[in-house]
C-alpha cells in the first residue's frame, strides 16, 4: 500500500515528466510489448487452421533443431567471438578516429573525410559481396591478377577458411566505423573546453589531454554502446555473413554463426515455431549477459548503468 502511494505521489509531483514520457511508452507498448505474445509460438506446433493459443503446446520440441546438428556450441562460440571482435575493435577504432578527426585543423579536409567515411554505410552487403568476389576470385580476381603480374603464385582465398576471420571483421569495420564515429564525435563536441584550457595551463601535452580528458569523458557513451551490443550478442550481422560466405561450406567452420545456420535450416519450411525458438535462445543469452554486466557497472559507478 505504501508503495502504491509513493507511485501516486510521484505521478502528481512529476506529472509533466510523466506526460512527456507517455508517447514513448505508448510506442513501445504497441510496437514491442503487444507483439511479444508471439514468444509463445516457440512452444507450440504451428497450425494454419488454429489460432496461436489453440495450437498444440509442445514444450521445447521446437528447440531441438538447434542442438540436433551437434554444432550449437561451435555456432555459439563463433557468434560470440565475432561479436566480441566487432564490439572491441569497432569501439576502439571509432574512438580513435573520432579523436583524430576532432583534432584536424584543415576545415575542408575534416569535412570531406567525415563524409567519405560515411559512404560504406550505404553500400549493402549484396553489393559488397560482388566487390569482394571481384577482388578475391581465383581465376580473374584483382588480387590474383596482381600476384600473377609479379610472377607469384595465385592464392585461393575462397578455399582458405582462416583468412575469412580477419576479412569479415575488416568489412564489418569498414562498413560501420563512419557511423559509430559520429556518436563519439558528438560526445567529444560536448566536452567543455575549460577542461582542455586548464590542462594546457598545467602543461599537459596533446597525448596527455587525450588520455586524461577525452577518453574518460567518452566512457558513458562507450557503456551505452557496449550494453546495447551485448544484448544482441547472439544475433546480428546476418547479411554480412550470408552474403560474403553464402553456400561455401568449406568456410563454415570459421564463419558460420547462429543466424546463418537458422536461416539455412528453416529456409524451405519457414517454421514459425522453430524460428521463434531460435529467437528465444538468442534473447535469453543476451538478457543474462546484459544483466550481469549492468550489475557490475552499477557497482562501479551508478551513473553509467543503463537502468
Amino acid at each position: 500500500m505504501i508503495k502504491r502511494n509513493t507511485f501516486l505521489r510521484e505521478i502528481v509531483t512529476n506529472r509533466m515528466l510523466f506526460l512527456m514520457l507517455i508517447p514513448t511508452l505508448l510506442f513501445f507498448v504497441i510496437n514491442n510489448y503487444l507483439p511479444m505474445v508471439g514468444i509463445y509460438y516457440a512452444f507450440t506446433r504451428f497450425d494454419f487452421s488454429k489460432s496461436l493459443f489453440d495450437s498444440d503446446f509442445v514444450g521445447f520440441e521446437n528447440f531441438e533443431f538447434l542442438w540436433r546438428s551437434g554444432i550449437l556450441t561451435r555456432l555459439t562460440l563463433n557468434t560470440l567471438g565475432y561479436n566480441a571482435a566487432f564490439i572491441l575493435l569497432g569501439n576502439v577504432g571509432a574512438i580513435a578516429l573520432a579523436v583524430l578527426v576532432s583534432e584536424l585543423k584543415l576545415k575542408w579536409f575534416k569535412k570531406l573525410s567525415q563524409s567519405v567515411m560515411f559512404l560504406p554505410y550505404f553500400i549493402s552487403f549484396v553489393i559488397l559481396s560482388v566487390i569482394v568476389y571481384n577482388i578475391f576470385n581465383y581465376e580473374s580476381g584483382f588480387l590474383n591478377t596482381l600476384l600473377k603480374g609479379w610472377g607469384l603464385n595465385p592464392v585461393d582465398v575462397y578455399s582458405t577458411p582462416w583468412v575469412w576471420v580477419p576479412l569479415i571483421i575488416f568489412f564489418y569495420l569498414w562498413k560501420n566505423l563512419g557511423y559509430s564515429m559520429v556518436i563519439y564525435l558528438a560526445a567529444i563536441t560536448g566536452i567543455s573546453d575549460e577542461y582542455y584550457e586548464a590542462a594546457k595551463i598545467d602543461g599537459a601535452h596533446i597525448f596527455q589531454r587525450v588520455r586524461y580528458i577525452t577518453i574518460p569523458m567518452l566512457k558513458s557513451t562507450f557503456v551505452v554502446l557496449l550494453l546495447f551490443a551485448l544484448g544482441s550478442i547472439m544475433k546480428g550481422q546476418f547479411d554480412l555473413f550470408y552474403q560474403l560466405i553464402g553456400n561455401n561450406g568449406m568456410l563454415y567452420n570459421a564463419t558460420d554463426i547462429l543466424d546463418t545456420y537458422v536461416y539455412r535450416s528453416l529456409k524451405v519450411t519457414f517454421d514459425i515455431g522453430m524460428a521463434s525458438a531460435a529467437g528465444v535462445y538468442q534473447s535469453l543469452f543476451g538478457f543474462a549477459l546484459v544483466m550481469i554486466v549492468n550489475t557490475i557497472i552499477r557497482k562501479i559507478n551508478e551513473d553509467y548503468a543503463l537502468f
Binding site: F28, N31, N32, Y33, L34, P35, M36, V37, G38, I39, Y41, L52, F228, G231, S232, I272, A275, S276, G279, S283, G286, F287, V290
Partner: peptide
C-alpha cells in the same frame, strides 16, 4: 524491447 521480441508474425 531490444532483448525480447515476438517476431514478425504477431
Amino acid at each position: 524491447t531490444t532483448l525480447f521480441g515476438g517476431g514478425l508474425v504477431p
